[in-house]
Design a protein around this nucleic acid. Structure first.
Lengths: 350, 350
DNA sequence: TTGTACGCGTTATCAA
DNA sequence: TTGATAACGCGTACAA
């Protein structure tokens, strides 16, 4: 069975290929009688238009390129799902490529995407220079999620990470915590820097001086959290709470504390960031900042579709939300009915 | 800047388009001098072949369709990454579509994939009938991961789930557990059925009769695990260990036990299946069965590439491996130095 | 080894 | 409203 072409359909319907094309692509008006004939012929033959030929002729591939950083990322996964759902029914398909947070790798990913003549590009985080994105945007509409691109501010979907970082610290400060350890994300990661900035702002407002011994840096993956706890204890740090720049590292911190017999939240409170799928099911459920990642992915897709239709959509604003679960509790000294006692020291068991 | 065509390159290089084509697609031999001229012209102009036109002319889209069930699945995510890496450098790109474990949804996903004239199809799980996959395979090479397709056995990559289920039970039985609760996956899910079968086989071998009161069914997501614990306790079940058909539900079980003050592994041992990224960082780290999901994805991609090159690759065998971590311990009665005591009853605190 | 010319399946243009 | 015909950019017989 050789693949069917428009010509076959046209022949059966008794019309010209152009008419058949018009009917099947809904481009122009066709007399109902012929219209029906074409539809019936297509149906009966099981005709399926060839997207490639269509792309060549029309100049539109009907593909949306999605530059993600890691196809298996628990964080961006929800965003990808949002993009997928946002594209649903539009005739466009998403095509993904991973940049792994490396500029060259991202470049080659973009390369492979544009090589397929995608009609638009959705960028999920990454380190590709703003200038490069602006340049791409001159001939290909670009929408970015999770990053701020100078010159493309109205094409960026993000949350206020400074605010998120601030909220985490504030929550703990209000619970009476004063010695708060902070496990930051990579220094070259904008979100990580913003969260740390918000954290420090809160400390300042509460008149607490920033203790370098309480701040560490990790790579956003689980083992970094484990290591952070070890480093903290090794340097004899005293703390009643730990804020971690993302949930994945918070999982590591949780395990590190567990290994040392430090209870959460009884001995130490723990706060994460992202609200990954598993964070509601850790023991105890993790207090964290939820990002509307799915919604952002969906909004990105819809915005791009609107742009492709000639509109200039106003991108909605997204708010991060602190979810207070069970990994945070009032600081010991702040708890009524309990004698104030010195905070936990390394090696000490509860 | 109008997009460059082969014609532009050919003009600059002083050769015909066909020669330029031959050089850039490596199809035939070209005199070194001309070859270099073409390469230089392409380089200098920044020429990028148009994949769409190429696809139309050659009949190959250089796209590999990947039917996944959920683009954000923590389980298949690693497989997708494997596919991506396996395709790397081959000139083929993966294009994903999600079926959400619903036959009609999978059908439309396959539809959108074939509509883009993918050159091959990788199927990740799902409920699409075997017959349909066989039919597709007649005109499009198909490789399946995580399922057994009748008639396409040599195109399937999977692990022995019966064996995996057996190993879990055996591990606990050897630790002295006799009353083992089992939270199964969806009945219509082949992997789930296999794991349960392996479980029951082990029980039989140990001469333990299957207690229906100890078996529950979930949907493979976290909340189901939580519910399972509640149901178990509500019906007054007595058990010293729980085996859960996948890690996601095991997380739910873990939380359910935590909520009831039941310690893991002190009071109850817990075993999962899949070894998700987070499972090494739960508290305690989860004993589970690791599936080489990344490797399977990679192997699937490589196998498909081989088939496209006319080979008939022998698919490697994959083994699941029980990872004994800290969520399992000898049954109380089996522990030396501890008096045997009745197993935990609902409502009882440790 | 190289160039000419045609075809891939569809949409777009232009007359009719 | 319709049909013939020319693109779309590239691969590839075929001839030279």
């Amino acid at each position: 069975m050789p693949p069917l072409t428009l010509e076959d359909v046209a022949k059966v319907a008794g019309v010209s290929v152009s008419t058949a094309s018009r009917v099947l692509s809904g481009t122009a008006n066709v007399r109902p009688a012929k219209r029906d004939a074409v539809m019936r012929a297509a149906e009966q033959l099981g005709y399926r238009p060839n997207a490639i030929a269509r792309g060549l002729a029309s100049g539109r591939s009907m593909l949306i390129g999605v530059l993600t950083q890691d196809i298996a990322s628990p964080f961006y996964g929800e965003t990808l799902r949002g993009v997928e759902d946002g594209l649903e029914g539009s005739g466009y398909s998403g095509i993904f490529a991973s940049g792994h947070w490396r500029v060259e790798s991202e470049a080659s990913a973009i390369h492979s995407l544009t090589g397929r003549s995608v009609d638009g590009l959705i960028v999920l985080g990454g380190h590709t220079p703003d200038a490069r994105l602006r340049e791409i945007n001159t001939h290909l509409p670009v929408v970015a999620v999770g990053r701020q691109v100078k010159g493309l501010e109205d094409r960026c979907l993000r949350i206020d990470n400074v605010r998120g970082g601030y909220d985490c610290a504030r929550h703990l400060l209000e619970l009476g915590h004063r010695r708060i350890a902070y496990v930051a994300g990579p220094r070259d990661h904008r979100d990580a820097r913003d969260r740390l900035e918000g954290h420090r702002r809160a400390l300042r407002e509460w008149g607490i001086e920033d203790d370098p011994a309480l701040t560490l840096e990790g790579d956003f993956h689980e083992p970094a959290g484990l290591l952070a706890v070890e480093a903290l204890l090794a340097r004899g740090a005293v703390f009643s709470a730990v804020i971690v720049a993302n949930d994945q590292m918070a999982y590591g911190v949780r395990l590190g504390l567990y290994r040392r017999g430090i209870r959460v939240p009884d001995d130490v409170s723990l706060v994460g960031f992202d609200d990954l799928a598993g964070s509601a099911f850790t023991t105890p459920p993790l207090t964290t900042v939820r990002q509307p990642t799915y919604e952002m992915g969906m909004a990105a897709a819809e915005a791009l579709l609107a742009i492709l239709n000639g509109a200039s959509p106003a991108l909605p604003l997204f708010e991060a939300q602190l979810l207070i679960r069970e990994s945070t509790a009032p600081a010991r000294s702040a708890r009524p009915g309990l004698p104030a006692r010195p905070e936990l020291r390394p090696g000490e068991r509860s």
